[in-house]
Design a protein around this nucleic acid. Structure first.
Lengths: 120, 120
DNA sequence: CTGTCGCCTGGAGCGCGCTCCAGGTCAAGA
DNA sequence: TCTTGACCTGGAGCGCGCTCCAGGCGACAG
């Protein structure tokens, strides 16, 4: 059930350096250590890391991620705030997708235009 | 019909510094200058800049943008390569959107889970 | 005639998110 | 016993895409 840093990194798809960085900046507080100081990741740590990574990959900046991590540490009372934060992120993803689709439309128009010119 | 740097920046929605930077790195070669060395943007320059900006905003890295700008300067013979480049970018936008939707799914599942816990 | 404004240049600096490095500890295998 | 390998730390460095700065120039307003 516990994972070494290398296993954790492999499972989530990040580098060990990223894991250490996340701990350093307060995104992953409370990860246990073994007798010689090496990190030991629980299943729960992994899912936390996975969620953080998912939020990060979908565009959440580190500062916001830190806020989320803080709320996670705040226990049950912060569940509402966590939900609100995720809901806002959800909306931001929608907006980003909409924006990408607009840009894609323009790209496609340009492609169509190049094609129409090609067949003179 | 011609625009000053400030007007060009305003119309496209970038800073003058960005315009200068784009010229410096070869994305906007061939912009004319007036008698004292100030840039003069034609309608065509604006649409070029606008397209570059659109590609950039939709995630194309500068190196690729540079390649595209080179092709633009290559004239009619490069139209096919330009089209190919834009088509690939179009696919990349699709992939990025798909990825975002996956991540959004996970975010929504987490929200749903928080909600289900809240109503114990 | 003196601001002030918009622009010019080359080059330094910045914010983000890692990534790499030097130097060290311990454990297990040959 | 020696080596290899995974991990540790603090801190420097990096790649990207701008952004800002100092110092200067010409045009136009008061």
């Amino acid at each position: 059930m516990p994972y070494t840093p290398g296993e954790a990194a492999g499972r989530i798809g990040v580098s060990i350096d990223t894991i250490r960085y996340y701990e350093k900046i307060g995104l992953m507080n409370g990860v246990e250590r073994d007798s010689v100081g090496r990190r030991v990741f629980s299943e729960h740590d992994l899912s936390r890391l996975g969620l953080l990574r998912c939020l990060r990959d979908s565009g959440m900046p580190i500062a916001r991620l830190r806020r989320f991590a803080e709320l996670l540490e705040g226990g049950d009372e912060t569940a509402g705030q966590r939900t609100a934060l995720l809901e806002e992120h959800d909306r931001e993803i929608d907006e980003k997708v909409a924006q990408l689709r607009l840009e894609q439309k323009r790209v496609r128009e340009k492609i169509a235009w190049y094609r129409s010119v090609a067949e003179h």
